[in-house]
C-alpha cells in the first residue's frame, strides 16, 4: 500500500534531509556560529548519511529483504546524494573559514587535510551518476562506480581522526557498518559451506 505519492514522499524526504543544513546556515547568518564551528557538524552529517546509505545493502544480504529494509534501500541513492551535498557544504564552510586560496594550498599537504579533499573527490563520480538514466546506461559498471564510496568513507574517517586524534566518534560511525559487513561475510561463508556440504 502506498501512503503518499512518490514525488510527495521524495519531497518530504529531501525537506527532512535539508533541516540540519538550514539550522547550520541560520547559525552562520545569524552570527551565533563561526564558520569553524560548523566544520564538525557539516562533516559529521555527511559521514552519517554515508553510513545510512551504505547500511541497507549488507543488511539485506545478511537478513534477506523485508519491508523495512526494502524501503530503506529505495531511498539509499537519496541518502548518498545528500551525503555528497553535506560534503560540499563542509567544503564551502572550510573555504569561508580559510578566507584565501593561498591559505588552503598552504595546508593541503597536511594528512588531516588532503584525506578530506581525496574523500570529496572520490564522492564526485558516484554522486554524478546517481540518477536513473545513468544507472541504465552504465549497467553493471554503475555498481563498480558506487563502490568508490567505501574508499571515500574510510578516507573521511581518516580525515576526522587525523584532525581530532579522538578515535571514539570515528569508531562509533564505523561500528554499524563493520558489524553489517562482518555479518554479511559470515552469512555468505556459512551459505557457501552449507551448499558445499549438500552438493
Amino acid at each position: 500500500m502506498t501512503l503518499l505519492p512518490r514525488a510527495t514522499a521524495k519531497a518530504i524526504l529531501w525537506l527532512l534531509l535539508a533541516v540540519p543544513a538550514a539550522l547550520m546556515l541560520r547559525g552562520l547568518v545569524g552570527g551565533e556560529a563561526l564558520p569553524m564551528d560548523l566544520l564538525h557538524p557539516s562533516g559529521e552529517t555527511s559521514v552519517r548519511l554515508m553510513v545510512l546509505a551504505m547500511l541497507p545493502g549488507p543488511l539485506i544480504d545478511a537478513f534477506g529483504p523485508n519491508r523495512f529494509l526494502r524501503g530503506w534501500l529505495s531511498i539509499r541513492r537519496n541518502l548518498g546524494v545528500a551525503a555528497f551535498a553535506y560534503a560540499l557544504l563542509h567544503l564551502a564552510i572550510y573555504v569561508i573559514d580559510m578566507r584565501t586560496i593561498a591559505a588552503m594550498l598552504d595546508e593541503l599537504g597536511l594528512p588531516g587535510i588532503w584525506t578530506g579533499w581525496l574523500a570529496l573527490f572520490l564522492m564526485i563520480l558516484p554522486a554524478a551518476v546517481s540518477f536513473d538514466r545513468a544507472m541504465r546506461w552504465l549497467g553493471r559498471g554503475w555498481k563498480r562506480i558506487q563502490r568508490l564510496v567505501y574508499a571515500a568513507f574510510v578516507l573521511a574517517l581518516a580525515h576526522w581522526l587525523l584532525l581530532d586524534w579522538n578515535w571514539k566518534p570515528a569508531a562509533i560511525h564505523l561500528l554499524p557498518l563493520a558489524m553489517a559487513w562482518l555479518l554479511r561475510a559470515w552469512r555468505v561463508s556459512t551459505k557457501v559451506t552449507r551448499e558445499r556440504t549438500f552438493a
Binding site: 594528512p111 567505501y150 574508499a151 568513507f153 578516507l155 581530532d164 586524534w165 559487513w181
Partner: peptide
Amino acid sequence: PPLVAFAAALGCALMASPAQAD
C-alpha cells in the same frame, strides 16, 4: 574495496605524527 580503503587510511595514519586528542 573496503579492505583497500582501510589499508589506505592506515597508511595515512602512519604517515602523520600522532597528537593528543584536544
